[in-house]
Nucleic acid binder design. Structure first.
Lengths: 212, 212
DNA sequence: TTTGCAACCTATCATAGATAGCCTATCAGG
DNA sequence: CCTGATAGGCTATCTATGATAGGTTGCAAA
């Protein structure tokens, strides 16, 4: 399973990557009950160690979530790059990028929430300002990819691209966030809504090359 | 100030509307330190009573936030109605409605967060399903107003209106929510961003009457 | 006066994340 | 084969949270 430090010994946790095990267990518990409902004691019990022992592997409860969040967003980045390198018109690639973004948010609601919906003060405080928080880095990275894609598609001045990129990001985020935060709202068919939303966002760029 | 039970006596809190006083104090503390950072003990201390005494006036800590949220959204509804009744083209009224919505969110970030960004499970659970939660009612009410405005502007089939209303709401929410959740992000000039965002949303409807 | 009750109190609970200090199995060096 | 260092773990405990239990006070109406 793990290629790291498996030297054969197993007693007392040696040989198994405890940190990795904790992350896996936490991920499963988060998916099952929702991140906010899972306590460090639950995680520790599921792992089979005491609650304070978690702090030998992580500096804080938040660090566990942050690490998982970072990994999840790495997956989004990989998927995004694949989309951007795939064949198709610039508009289609951009459309699929938006689609991948929304799908990611809906597939990892807790991670998306942590990255873009929670106030940084709740989770970290100094780290954010220092730019050292992995969650922030993950979120920023995801946006940067989208901005690059838009820049390629438009080829306009930097300032204009930044403005439009932020506006488009807001629109895509809006649907993702609302579907996550208000799943019980009487939404129209989700698939139709997403398709319409992305189409509306892409609409101004259907003939972008000609109009600009 | 209050028309309720002010009989003249003041000792032991009689004569002053404690519930109202708690709400005012809580509102100020929320504005000062952020809702998540304010505890029931802080509120009680600021009011001058013990922490358990709060429960004589509110069933839970959430009820305090919910009441304040309800009042804030009542303000949004009033402002929205004013916009809708004001003169101007349908497009302009719709634009100003979006503007009022965003401005409201930025002016009352905690209330907006409570209504649209927090997961209902965190705050209430059964209440939501029963439709009795004032926060949910407030949020729903705000959206309903916008939907009506769009219906007036478009005059299309109900299903189409619902689809477009939800998509537009998502876009407007997206910018509001991101500006609230990530104030430190390197945004372009906020005013320019909001104007551009609303313009982009309204763009398809500039010649709506002709194209439909 | 006496009764009733609303408002308030202190004491306490359960749970959260987090820290302190001790114990022990393993491993490296003599 | 012993010995010391240490990584990993433990129990006990701390502070803070929202919330409950049950007693006390003082006004007001009967």
């Amino acid at each position: 399973m793990n290629t790291a430090g498996a030297h054969g010994a197993e007693k007392r946790g040696r040989g198994i990557d405890r940190r990795e095990q904790i992350l896996q267990v936490a991920l499963q518990l988060f998916a099952q009950h929702g991140m906010a409902q899972v306590s460090t004691r639950q995680i520790a019990r599921a792992v089979g160690i005491s609650q304070p022992s978690l702090y030998a592997h992580f500096a804080s409860a938040h660090e566990i979530s942050a690490e998982l969040c970072l990994r999840a967003f790495a997956g989004l980045s990989a998927a995004s790059r694949k989309v951007l390198e795939a064949p198709g018109t610039a508009r289609d690639r951009f459309y699929r990028l938006g689609r991948a973004y929304i799908d990611f948010g809906l597939a990892h609601p807790d991670m998306y929430r942590l990255a873009f919906m929670q106030e940084p003060d709740e989770t970290v405080s100094q780290l954010v300002q220092q730019g050292k928080d992995p969650v922030m880095a993950a979120g920023q990275g995801a946006f940067d990819l989208a901005r690059q894609a838009l820049a390629q598609m438009l080829g306009r001045t930097e300032a204009e691209v930044e403005l439009q990129a932020q506006s488009i990001w807001a629109s895509v985020h809006g649907l993702t966030a609302l579907l996550i935060a208000r799943p019980m709202f009487p939404w129209v068919d989700r698939e139709r809504l997403i398709e319409h939303h992305l189409a509306a966002i892409c609409a101004p760029y259907e003939t972008a090359a000609a109009s600009g």
